[in-house]
């Protein structure tokens, strides 16, 4: 009997989520009608490639926002992880496979360490994560510049950059990787204790603590996951652009937060989903792409992007309110 309950719950959620899906569909239809190239295989490949980094960052950000935190440092962590990985990959005397493996490990580890530090500092001393990660934004950026002396790291093995631009049936491999991350995150959030605790902490931290769970531990895990996704984003960045720049990813945190919020996750924590985040990232990507195809000036483009972000959140608010009173 609870399966029917689950299905009905799922259906309700689907309808609830359809709001954001409808917005996405509306944008797609609009751009398909008014531009010549929007709905072409090439362009769709482009969009998917272009949203991949933001999507990966936003998946990690979803965990942090769900526990009621925020991570302003992901753009900087991405740059730091990228230059660490870049340095590892260009170490002399390594074969391409070893170089790539070492680099990926180093990049992911660097990202995780930064995230762990964010989580530890904000959870242990109960300092708002806004402040701690604002500090990390500067620390990681400074570290990236220090490590490289502000020089771009380049000359990666050919195999690596091929991975960055390879397609499977027209779908970028890096986007498939990001989708896989979305799936894993969805599974964690809906089918593990960790996920249950993350929603619980976001809703009522005290109730979770009094039920005998370590809030500290789960907060650390959420931030570490966010750091890890910044590390993954760093690897994808390198594979796509074939360089590792210490000034990469400036402002990326805001795009990632925007994707999460547009996707219907509450900034107060406790409510939202990673599927919504996927939708949010798609909306941002479709908009950025479509407005260029439409031939709008850069400044108009920037304004419209802002307007759409606000509209998406208002729509979600309206939906939440309407949904409550029915």
């Amino acid at each position: 009997m609870d399966t029917t309950a689950n299905t009905r719950q799922g259906l309700k959620e689907l309808i609830n989520r359809a709001g954001i899906g409808l917005a996405l569909l509306g944008l797609v239809v609009f751009f398909s009608v008014f531009t010549e190239h929007f709905l072409t295989a090439n362009n769709i490949t482009n969009i998917l490639t272009q949203i991949t980094i933001n999507l990966i960052l936003a998946v990690g950000m979803t965990f942090v926002i769900l526990i009621g935190g925020i991570d302003l440092s992901v753009g900087s962590i991405m740059a730091f992880a990228a230059v660490i990985a870049g340095k590892a990959m260009t170490m002399p005397g390594l074969g391409p496979t070893e170089a790539i493996l070492l680099a990926v490990m180093a990049g992911l580890l660097a990202g995780m360490l930064c995230g762990l530090l964010n989580g530890f500092l904000s959870a242990y001393w109960s300092i708002p994560s806004f402040i701690i990660t604002l500090g990390m934004l500067n620390i990681a950026r400074g570290a990236a510049l220090q490590v490289t002396d502000a020089q771009t790291v380049y000359a990666f093995p050919k195999e690596f950059s091929e991975f960055g631009s390879s397609l499977i049936f027209g779908v970028p491999v890096v986007f498939i990787l990001a989708l896989l991350l979305v799936a894993v995150a969805w599974f964690i959030l809906n089918h593990t204790i960790l996920g249950r605790m993350i929603y619980g902490i976001g809703n009522n931290e005290e109730a979770v603590r009094l039920a005998g769970h370590s809030v500290f531990r789960y907060k650390m895990i959420a931030f570490t996951i966010c750091g890890l996704t910044a590390g993954i984003a760093a690897i994808v960045y390198m594979a796509r652009l074939n360089i590792a720049s210490p000034i990469a990813g400036i402002g990326f945190e805001l795009n990632a937060i925007a994707a999460v919020i547009i996707g219907g996750t509450s900034l107060n924590g406790g409510r939202g989903s990673v599927i919504g985040t996927l939708m949010g990232a798609l909306i941002i990507g479709v908009l950025a792409n479509g407005l260029i195809l439409l031939g709008l000036s850069d400044f108009m483009r920037q304004m419209i992007t802002g307007v759409v972000l606000i509209a998406a959140v208002l729509l979600d608010q309206y939906r939440a309110r309407y949904g409550r009173s029915t």
């Binding site: 010549e36 190239h37 362009n43 482009n46 490639t49 272009q50 360089i243 950025a288 195809l293 031939g295």
Partner: peptide, 23 residues
């Protein structure tokens, strides 16, 4: 044909240009 900013940035240039190329 077109002229757009990518704010000196590698990643943004990559995204903006690939879209320009599509158009």
């Amino acid at each position: 044909v077109d002229s757009r900013t990518a704010h000196w940035e590698t990643e943004e240039a990559n995204s903006v240009f690939s879209t320009m190329l599509t158009a």
